[in-house]
Design a protein around this nucleic acid. Structure first.
Lengths: 207, 207
DNA sequence: GACCGTATATTCTAATCAGGATATTTATAT
DNA sequence: ATATAAATATCCTGATTAGAATATACGGTC
């Protein structure tokens, strides 16, 4: 659970996890992550993947095993994990699991500036969000069914389950907030309205 | 609710919000955000702040109003928001509020790779997380009291309330998961254990 | 057999970002 | 009086990152 990591991108963790299983070339790692839907939890794009692999190799957490080519395709380098890499993987992963980290989400950023919007607009937008969250959750239902039918073991979709739970909690809370504003019950609503009625944010007259 | 923004860093949104109130120089924006605890929801550091302000000015969303110096301190530039900037602020903020965005959190990344850890270790780490979440929530209690005492209107801490709610939901879920693993009730646990008992992740013998 | 879309595989580049360096002023303690 | 710390204010630079560009192969269809 050491200090700052040499390679900090979570994608690097996914790379280590792939190579923990068996040696692969980068493109195959990407394919593996996609197939297992890990790219929904860890941002994956090729630009970053190759940079991250390079970084891991530079720090000896992984190393090239061989380069080969199939037919006339571009040559590809197969990497394997090192002992240091295995250690880093476990250490890093343990860290992520046991230490709640400060995260900066888009919605929280938006909420923190909510007073900028007029109360009525805010209420309408929050209701919109509820609708969209409901749609999202309905779509997730399909995946739930998949797990329930034992086609995919729950363990392998545990991160999706976590995401749903948080979305549900979010929905419940946002619904409440939208209602409170809509029904005029939020503390401080009068001031908020007053602030906007008195022309906040309009272009100030050039004196 | 347009496509990709010219300046995408949420800090830029905070800058626009500050200038929506009144003209300021960058350092004052930072001080304002800190004072209002907005830096807990929007990542703030000086390096980014000045870059972002420059970007906003380049795109005419804000513009320098005057430069002044107090005593012998570095000269400072006071910016004001433009009409385009006011529009962008409302548009962007509305977008954040009404569209649930895909977020990549550290914990979700960790969860998605949970099978890499041995079940017993995973359970222990998840319990650890619960303890730390409890501490976090206990500390937040102080802020709750502040709001309850009407020193700070609820509206101005609404983002913190949201964060607590999600943390509470997380705690409940993680507790459940840790218990299921600990008590051997998780579906697929036997396979997971077997996988680790059979030497997964140990250095493969060089044949 | 010519065409088109998708899969295989990597590299390049422009832009963004975080962290620290810099330099002065004011407040506090010695 | 002097040292030290904290606040004021900005800028620089290396590292990271995302998106696009590149190039070949394969599988199906008209």
């Amino acid at each position: 659970m050491s200090g700052r990591r040499k390679v900090a991108n979570p994608l690097a963790l996914a790379v280590l996890a792939c190579l923990f299983e068996r040696p692969m070339h980068p493109y195959e790692m990407a394919a593996t992550m996609r197939e297992r839907h890990k790219d929904e939890s860890i941002k994956l794009n090729y630009g970053s993947l190759y940079t991250v692999v390079e970084g891991l190799a530079r720090h000896k957490l992984i190393e090239p095993q061989e380069t080969e080519r199939a037919g006339n395709r571009p040559e590809r380098t197969i990497y394997r994990i090192t002992d240091a890499g295995r250690h880093e993987l476990i250490d890093w992963l343990s860290d992520l699991i046991c230490n709640p980290a400060r995260e900066y989400t888009q919605f929280e950023a938006g909420l923190s500036l909510l007073p900028v919007l007029a109360p009525a607009d805010a209420a309408r937008l929050l209701e919109q969000r509820c609708l969209r969250l409901e749609i999202e959750l309905a779509q997730a239902e399909a995946l739930r069914t998949l797990v329930a039918s034992r086609k995919v073991p729950r363990l392998f979709m545990i991160e999706a389950e976590y995401r749903w739970r948080l979305r549900e909690a979010e929905l419940a809370w946002v619904r409440g907030l939208a209602a409170e504003i809509g029904e005029g019950k939020l503390e401080g609503l009068a001031e908020w309205q007053g602030f906007h009625a008195s022309g906040a944010g309009r272009k100030p007259p050039d004196k």
